[in-house]
Design a protein around this nucleic acid. Sequence first.
RNA 1: UCCCCGGUAGCUCAGUCGGUAGAGCGGGUGGCUGUUAACCACUAGGUCGGCGGUUCGAGCCCGUCCCGGGGAGCCA
Length: 459
Amino acid sequence: MPESVHSLLHSESVRDAVTVAGWVRTRRDSKEFSFIEVNDGSCLANLQILVEAACQDYGIVGTVHTGAAIRVEGELVASPGKGQRWEVRARRLQLVGPAPEDFPLQKKRHTDEFLRTIAHLRPRTNKYGAMFRIRARLAHAVHEFFHQRGFYWIHTPIITGADCEGAGEMFRVTTLDLDNIPKVNGAVDFSQDFFGKEANLTVSGQLSVETCCLALGKVYTFGPTFRSENSNTSRHMAEFWMIEPEIAFADLRDDMALGEELVRHLVRFVQQECAEDLDLFARFVDKDLPARLENIASHEFIRLSYTETVELLQKSGRKFEFPPAWGHDLQSEHERFLTEDHFKQPVIVYDYPREMKAFYMRQNDDGRTVAAMDILVPAIGELIGGSQREERYDHLERRIAELGFDLADYWWYLDTRKYGTVPHAGFGLGFERLLMLVTGVGNIRDVIPFPRTPKHLEF
RNA sequence: UCCCCGGUAGCUCAGUCGGUAGAGCGGGUGGCUGUUAACCACUAGGUCGGCGGUUCGAGCCCGUCCCGGGGAGCCA
């Protein structure tokens, strides 16, 4: 196996015999020798290869174009040139996989729009390589965060038979022959489908993970989530990854504290552990990124009740397209005003009107609000949505009935309140939105290798 | 789904008043230098998103469709 570029660049000394393999980023020819910069994805930096005329494979240098895969054997030596400490003087150069002249990635800046059309090649760019390294390390840090605090990772189902998750449009899962759908009295006969009933992709693991919360105490899910909303924005996808912790014997205050601790911990993690890749985003994507991350990591989030928020917006003197009013959703322009203009940092809004929120959220004593909370962040808006859950059987049952849902569909969920119910709370954090926050990337389609959005399933 | 903007070489873009296609990068050839998005010269490369219309003449004006982007709603 070849040694990684990362490892070679961090070598303590010269090395007599090393092997490195990767993809060519650029080549510079002189009359008697060539420089090849190779990147193997192990880090942002390239390794410079010197191929001299004396090298027995010098003859193939001309076939080594940008994008080609090569394997090099040689010695690691101190580089006399500027810009790098080490370089490899090649003894052998092998063209593992050539890249013809129509290789789409040039040694110049490409637009994100173009790179989206070649999602199979964009990981080979500096920016997307950095993004996917950060993504992987951040995902690991999420698990680490929870593990250190005694949480258990629960694998909630991807396929759900419950239409009671209540968080948006769902993708149907079926093995029925769509050209010949079995029907009874004009309606689809799902008894003949694979599961014998309607099945969908999950829109949230929350209801499932609550059952484990009320057994293991502190739990979370972290996995793919699906929404078939026809959303065409820079911060929505049909398939995304969501982190959903759920804590027992806890209220909304505990929930907000956990959300804030998680976000600030992960921001700090990226600052400290992904510095080289993060610097690329600070230089080429968002100049204000370092200051914004430091601001998030080092300051407590603002907490404001929904009622206080509406009053603040109304008294702000700001002319909004949609005037804020109690009982109406906060608009994007309202959220941006709070996080970007007024407070200039994340804001937690809590205790929303019950009509705006889901059935499972705990009703407050005022009779008109529920113990819900959203964490809003600059540039992105809602990063976290959560609540204390309604743990009182009669309240929950009444709310389900009020909304016209069928109580029978919720039998197992209600059972958790019938037997040993306890106050508990949780939230959902959009992993891709977190990546947007920590990298400054403005479009959610650029923080995941293969984005799924309406009318886009190319790769 | 609604509103706005855009589609010109492999990529990034320019193209004036409607007058018949340009640059840089990338590719090829040659030169030169321990080079750093190397540099210099030469060269190849185009159904101007598709279709229809107006005009003597359309990359440019009109209609329509397709595709892309931004904003809004829904939310994570």
